[in-house]
């Protein structure tokens, strides 16, 4: 069979053109536009070299703060979503009444738009009438009630919790799929050898789940760096710039018409994502290689 004739390359034209023109090429051009003074006040675009990056470094207090917030969000959500997601998956993998309905419920927020989830939680976290504070008061923890999205200590943490609420179901589903690939014979053999539950979790379940852990960590890390809608709707980066993240900076500079600078932030985001993706892939595949040997 002539593969060239049977599987013609023109099948690739549509996806390569659409993706290439509207995603790949713009990503490549971003390195150029990040070195220009392109803005909305001036129709001409000048090459300015590393000027935009210098601006970022010069005003670094502001911008490093946003980077710090993005990192806080990334680490916080990744840790919580994996811990809780694994916990939910382990229990829902057992014979529990209504486990299918429970899985459906925990996954439900994953299907909702981040914008809508943000909107719902502007109400839930409202300091005067919000549901969270009312519940806290009702169960006698009224002294914990606070202005969640306004106070310095709680604003970013609240955004983290909203993201965990929205996305923990995704991690749960990935872990459930991983758990179902583990053969029962391992546990039977272990229990004959007298292993307790904790040992089985540590020495069978977790090592066998490494592929799922890898997928979850990678997706969580990459997607958290792109966080935008939740911050945009919950705090708009405020109060002040307390909850500013990288993508709200990109949008802020875009709205202000400083296109070159906005692109430079986008490039930073791209580079950080690339570094995280490749290093975590490398570390995790090494961990997995070690297990298989």
């Amino acid at each position: 069979m002539n593969k060239k004739k049977v599987y013609p390359l023109y099948f690739l034209i549509l996806p390569v053109v659409v993706y290439g023109l509207l995603f790949f090429l713009p990503s490549m051009f971003s390195f150029y536009y990040a070195m220009t003074d392109w803005n909305s006040y001036n129709s001409e675009i000048h090459f300015v070299g590393f000027e935009n990056y210098k601006t970022i470094l010069k005003d670094s207090q502001n911008y490093l703060h946003a980077l710090g917030n993005t990192l806080f969000f990334t680490v916080g959500t990744t840790v919580l979503k994996n811990g809780l997601g694994l916990f939910l998956a382990l229990i829902l993998n057992e014979r529990i009444k209504g486990k299918n309905l429970l899985r459906l419920i925990f996954y439900l927020p994953v299907t909702m738009a981040p914008l809508i989830v943000g909107l719902i939680f502007t109400s839930v976290l409202n300091p005067s009438y919000g549901l969270l504070n009312s519940v806290l008061e009702a169960i006698g923890l009224g002294n914990l009630a606070t202005a969640w999205l306004v106070k310095k200590n709680t604003a970013m943490a609240s955004i983290v919790m909203v993201e965990v609420w929205k996305s923990v179901g995704f991690n749960m589903i990935i872990y459930l799929a991983g758990l179902q690939t583990i053969s029962k014979t391992y546990f039977e053999a272990a229990s004959i050898d007298g292993a307790g539950k904790r040992h089985m979790l540590l020495y069978i379940t977790l090592p066998m789940l490494l592929p799922s852990i890898q997928v979850n960590l990678l997706l969580n890390l990459i997607n958290s760096f792109k966080v935008f809608e939740l911050v945009f709707i919950l705090t708009r980066g405020g109060p002040g710039n307390m909850t500013e993240v990288l993508n709200t900076l990109v949008f802020g500079e875009f709205s202000a018409g400083r296109y070159g600078l906005s692109t430079a932030f986008g490039v930073c985001l791209l580079l950080i994502t690339a570094i995280i993706a490749f290093s975590s892939l490398k570390i995790l595949s090494r961990a997995m290689g070690g297990e298989e040997e």
């Binding site: 996806p15 995603f23 790949f24 971003s30 792109k226 990109v250 791209l270």
Partner: peptide, 22 residues
């Protein structure tokens, strides 16, 4: 070409050059 597509799974979109392209 497959790898070229996979890059898009990881890389974030950069809005301004995309606007330019549009």
């Amino acid at each position: 070409i497959y790898f070229f597509f996979l890059i898009g799974l990881l890389a974030p979109i950069n809005y301004i050059p995309t606007i330019r392209m549009l």
